[in-house]
Simulated assay, not measured.
Amino acid sequence: MARIFDVIEYPSEMDGEIVHRFPEDTAGDFRIGSQVIVRESQMAVFYRDGKALDTFGPGRHTIATANIPLLIDLIGKAFNDRSPFTAEVFFVSTREFADEKWGTPQPILVRNPGMGLGVALLQGFGTYSYKVADPQQFVAQIVGVTGIYTTKDIEARLRAMLLSKLQDLLGETAQETSVPELIGLVEELGIGVKAKTLDEFKAIGLSLLSFYIESLKPSERSAEELRAMGMLDMETYTQLQAADAMRDAAQNPSGGAGLTAGIGAGMGIGSAITDSLKKSSSGSGADVPASASGPPPVMTPSEAAAYLKVAEEDVVAAIEAGDIKAKKIGKAFRISKEALDEFLSS
């Protein structure tokens, strides 16, 4: 004979649990007069035949046709107070689920006109918190007949919703704000993401309480990794690959051929970007005349770096490696323009 439950409760803190069905594996036998005990930070949704009949807040409740009017229509008027009937109770946690983690699994592409390649790849991470605002809606839309539903079960869906809105917001904001300024607007962006997801969370019975961006910065992924993710066309890939080579060469303490190749690659990118910007500003593909003043005939490492469009330490490393001819006067280097032109043509 099936067990008849006279007391229905789930005395648990529900740590990590959003919903717990009673009984957990199947429907239970209850009767008019059974007691439903709901703890603080819980709500109980009473179900029969897949239909929500009522929701109970914290406290002790007696199952009766007076507080569940639909019950008499479902179990029939022939039932008396002691006749059992089959039903389910879903205990739903109403506490805040705080410090949930989010992060960008792939960099977010943001347009960055007038700087570098014209795009930036941003990565970020942070936390968010939420709670169940409509227990009936959440059980109906998300939980179904699942016996136990936890934060782990829904985290992928919520992260996808949040990251989609973050990507949209970054794209919209970048149209009027430079990327360096954008990175400084993490608080405003967090508020914006929260506002954008309001309706989607409400549709599944949830309320987003907070969305924090703890870090937002340019991606450190290499050109190879980005291309493997399908995020780069061939032209951008080639340029970024050259930039990677230059960065690696700058980190090479021995200098040599690697450094030379790196600086050469950097010059290639610099020239390509400069040409592109010149064409954009002039409105045509015609060449823009160079400055009449030009570089001085003899330069310091800093001036040479500006001429080559590389870092000063790269120039010094190339000098010490013997790739750039220079004169050392005391502790300072002086480089002729002819030596730099010879280096570039080598």
Rank of each mutant, 00 (worst) to 15 (best):
V298F: 11
T300V: 04
A286F: 15
P296T: 02
P297T: 11
T300L: 07
D275E: 14
K309Y: 05
I269M: 13
A272S: 14
Y307C: 15
T300K: 02
M299P: 02
V298M: 10
P296D: 00
S284M: 10
A286I: 13
I269N: 11
T300I: 08
D287P: 08
A304R: 04
A305E: 01
Y307V: 09
T274R: 15
I269S: 06
L277T: 03
S276D: 07
G283P: 04
S291R: 10
K278W: 09
K278M: 13
S271N: 14
G270L: 08
S291V: 06
E303D: 08
Y307A: 13
G270N: 14
A306N: 04
L277H: 04
Y307S: 01
M299E: 01
S284I: 08
K279A: 14
S271F: 15
A272Y: 13
L277S: 01
S284C: 14
T274D: 10
G285V: 09
I273F: 05
V288M: 06
T300H: 05
S293T: 14
S293A: 12
Y307D: 02
E303I: 11
K279Q: 13
P301C: 00
K309S: 05
K278P: 00
S284K: 11
S302R: 11
P289W: 05
S293H: 03
S293K: 15
G294H: 00
A306R: 02
V310L: 02
G270S: 15
S271A: 15
I269F: 06
S281L: 15
M299H: 07
A304L: 02
A292P: 02
G294M: 06
G285T: 13
P295Q: 03
Y307T: 05
K279R: 15
Y307Q: 07
A290R: 12
G285E: 13
S281Y: 10
S271M: 13
A290H: 12
V310H: 02
S276V: 00
V310N: 01
G270A: 14
P297I: 04
V310M: 09
P297W: 05
A290D: 10
P297A: 12
V298C: 06
V298G: 00
G294P: 00
P296Y: 02
A304D: 00
D287I: 12
P301G: 01
S302Y: 06
P296W: 04
S302A: 15
L308W: 01
Y307K: 04
P297K: 08
T300Q: 01
